[in-house]
Simulated scan of single mutants.
Amino acid sequence: MSGSGYDAVVDIDDEGDLGHTDLQEDLEFHNSNFSETTPALRKGGSGGGGGGSSSSGLPLPATASNSSGKRLIWTLSFYSQFFDVDTSSVLARCWAALYPRANFLDVLEGNPDLYGPFWIATTVVLILFLGGTISDYLASTGKGAFAYDFKLLSGAAGLIYGYTFVIPVALYLALRYFGSESANLLECWALYGYGNLIWIPVALISWSPITILNWVFVAVGFGVSVAFLLRNLYPVLSATDRQTSKVLLILVVALHFGLAIAIKVLFFAHGSPALKDGGGDKPPAADPPANPSRMF
């Protein structure tokens, strides 16, 4: 028996009571299949192979080369995780933003994305640009040539992208500073991004020359979007002290009101300051006086 290992096999009664087992009848000894060199192999001795195999001779798992599982910020895989969402999920989140029946953070299910916020903001930018251009053309009663003013495009991009992606960063840093452990930057981006969805139908009528209609639609867009933000941000803001949460709520509402006013003034009014010529409020330039020397 020297030089060989042994395995003990114990047969347990049907009742599962080991105390009533008859060791004399149920205890058997079998020769072990393990050799004495097994510990040496486990310690990286003989039979270990090269660098591409484990000490037991088996190949290393596919994930062994990156055991940390970290994604470096300069790699594409780091950013792809923020767009890991399918079309049905994006549509469901858009519907939840327009018709909120549950907390939007619950709808995200712990997987906030940047796909929806980016394309929603891009759509709002393009519609505001086209609507502002059409509005300026209609204000000139169609007498001038139809031309695009790309200052509207840059203004819309700076306003919408800046508000959607910069304000959440400031809010996240403020929440972390005041001790809110539940704050999440991706969730803040998702809230503000999907909250912009209401501005798409609002921007579609930005070419309308009816001023009161423009004000009504902007007011509706502001009310729906700010209610969406407050409903979902309040549980996060309330994690801070009472006075701080009130101040942050007021700032959220004030900044959103500023966005609504900027959209109305810059892209809905015919005399938009974003236009290079000030829109259609300026009267057409008079013809220059005739040169008397050329009259003869």
Rank of each mutant, 00 (worst) to 15 (best):
I261R: 12
P112Q: 01
M295N: 11
A157N: 01
F296N: 12
T75L: 13
T37P: 00
L251I: 13
S245P: 01
Y177D: 01
T123I: 14
G223W: 05
Y192G: 00
L266T: 09
V85C: 03
Y115S: 10
V10W: 10
F118R: 01
V166T: 11
F29T: 14
A8Q: 06
I134R: 06
S206N: 10
W215H: 05
P61R: 14
I120Q: 09
P39T: 09
V236R: 12
A102E: 13
G50Y: 03
N291L: 11
G158A: 02
G52D: 13
G50N: 12
H256W: 06
S238W: 10
I134L: 15
P288G: 06
D287R: 09
S182R: 14
I205H: 01
W215M: 11
D136I: 01
F257S: 14
A145E: 14
D13P: 01
K151M: 10
G45I: 08
G69N: 05
I212G: 05
A8M: 13
I160N: 03
W95H: 03
F104V: 02
G49M: 07
T87N: 04
Y6F: 09
D277P: 01
W189P: 00
P273C: 07
A121W: 03
D287W: 11
D106M: 07
P273V: 14
F217R: 00
V85I: 15
G158S: 06
N196G: 04
P209Y: 06
V218M: 08
P168Y: 02
V218D: 05
N111P: 00
I210V: 14
L72Y: 10
F82V: 03
G155L: 04
S67G: 09
A286S: 13
Y177V: 04
L60E: 07
A96P: 01
F296M: 13
K70H: 13
K276F: 11
L266S: 12
G48A: 15
G47C: 06
A97S: 07
G195H: 03
K264V: 09
W74T: 12
A121F: 06
A62Q: 08
V166G: 02
P39W: 03
S293K: 12
G179V: 08
I73C: 02
D149I: 04
W215R: 12
V9F: 09
F34I: 11
S180C: 14
H256A: 02
G45S: 03
G193W: 02
I210P: 00
L76H: 08
A102D: 08
L27S: 00
N232M: 12
S135I: 08
T63K: 11
G110M: 11
P288H: 03
S80Y: 02
R294T: 15
G48Y: 10
V253F: 06
R71A: 13
G16E: 02
L114G: 01
N232V: 04
R231W: 05
L114K: 06
G52T: 11
V124C: 05
V125P: 00
M1R: 07
P59V: 03
A203K: 04
D113W: 02
L130D: 02
V247M: 04
Y79D: 07
F296L: 13
A8F: 14
P168W: 01
T75V: 00
Y115M: 15
P235I: 02
L185Y: 05
N31F: 07
R294G: 04
G258E: 12
S54Y: 12
P61C: 05
G16W: 12
S68V: 11
N66P: 00
G3S: 05
